[in-house]
Amino acid sequence: MLLTMARVISRRMLVVIPILLAVSMLLFLVLRLLPVDPAAMSLPPTATNDEIEAMREAMGLNLPIPHQYAIWLRDTLSGEFGTSIQYRQPVGELIAKTLPATIELAVVAAIIATVVGIGGGLVIFRMRGTVGEAAGDVGSLLMLSLPDFLWGLILIFVFGVFWPVLPFIGRLDPGMVQPGGTGFLLIDALAAGQVRVFWSALVHMLIPATALGISFAPIVMRVLRSSLLDVYQEGYIAQARMRGVSEERILVSHALKNAILPTLTLMGVQFGFLFGGTLLIEVICSYPGVGNLMVGSVRNADLPVIQMVGLTYCAVTLLINTLVDALCVALNPKATA
């Protein structure tokens, strides 16, 4: 299985690398065409025209755009991502500080979406032909019709304001210190044996992660139910019934393992949208992730940060899709890599 996954990943990388290169070109071109002068923004407001021009030359902004891109690509491949205009810090350090928070949020949201989506899909399928199925359809459509940021606002109002049982700002309670390590707060807190920090981080994550998960779960429900309906038309389901196998065992042991593959593929593709959806949720909940960094950088026209964050979103999405493709091929020998 691991060998199959490694083979698929190596093939996918031949496609991923050109995509990342094309995205980096597009981002670089669009940002350079904006009516923003990074050189002037890097200097105090009292800077003279000569000082601004000298800064432009130092930053290479006086060169043709293809030449600028070649310099940027060379520096990026060597691990030099530039310096933030707003924060006066290396861009790589800023992303390294904020990206784990966003990945952690997206993973928790994906777990919530998986539990709700697969559980809800099984319940709705089990109630097929009844009033419960119609109610489940209406409920999934309602969940799907509201965007994640609106779910975030609703959850904040209900559980943060009207019935204040959950925090909705930041990652930790005031006064708590984030333990060092990987940057993934839940992992670092457990590794350090700080149960209170772990619990605080988990509770702070519930509202933004649930908002993302609720908007993602209905798609999983509907695809899983559709896949189960197709699987139940297969002959081996009828044969299992003839052998006296219970409906619960047929559903879980026979049908689900075949219907889960299309659902898994969809979840991998949709995870990219879920990861991108963290941007607005992070702003609403003041969650210090890479999405919040992106919004602050856009407000201040911090071009080096905008470019690297955009490229990071693309890279993470492509990586997740590649891993899911490899897993699906490994689980289904009939699939083609």
Rank of each mutant, 00 (worst) to 15 (best):
Y313I: 05
P288W: 08
V269H: 06
I320R: 00
G132Q: 11
V91G: 04
A209W: 06
L185N: 00
S200Q: 09
L202G: 07
F184W: 03
S297K: 09
T265D: 02
V108W: 03
A6V: 13
S145A: 12
V231H: 01
Y313Q: 08
A301G: 11
V309Q: 03
I71N: 13
L202V: 12
N49W: 12
L94K: 09
T278Q: 10
E104F: 05
I19L: 13
R241Y: 10
S297G: 06
T46G: 06
N292T: 14
L20D: 03
P174F: 08
I111R: 01
P90V: 10
L274F: 03
F216Q: 00
L14C: 03
T210P: 01
N321Q: 13
G272Q: 00
V305D: 01
F184D: 00
N258G: 05
L146N: 03
T98A: 15
R196D: 15
V298I: 15
P18G: 10
F271D: 03
P18E: 13
L144G: 11
V138E: 11
P66D: 12
Q68G: 04
I187T: 08
L150F: 14
I214E: 02
E248I: 14
V108P: 01
S286Q: 12
A134M: 13
L150M: 14
I65Y: 05
F125A: 07
A110E: 11
A39W: 04
G213V: 02
E53G: 07
E247W: 09
G310Q: 11
V15E: 12
A54F: 05
G277T: 07
Q89S: 10
G129P: 05
A22H: 11
L141Y: 15
T76H: 13
G60N: 13
P179M: 08
A301C: 07
A315S: 15
P35R: 02
T114H: 00
S140Y: 07
A54T: 12
R88K: 15
I306H: 06
P333G: 08
Y236A: 06
R225D: 01
M1V: 13
A101M: 09
I112N: 00
T278N: 10
Q89P: 02
E93A: 14
N300R: 15
L172W: 08
T102F: 05
S140Q: 08
L122C: 05
Y232K: 04
L21G: 10
N300L: 11
L212Q: 09
V298Q: 09
R243I: 07
W163Y: 15
I250Y: 05
G181V: 09
V16W: 00
V203K: 04
F125W: 12
A259F: 02
V123Y: 02
V36K: 03
F81R: 07
Y313V: 04
P208M: 06
A238G: 12
D37P: 08
R128H: 06
L155V: 02
A240E: 06
G139T: 00
D50W: 08
F157C: 08
T317F: 01
L323Y: 02
A70I: 15
Q233P: 07
E234V: 11
D137R: 10
T46C: 09
A330N: 04
E133H: 06
P164F: 02
A301Q: 14
I154S: 04
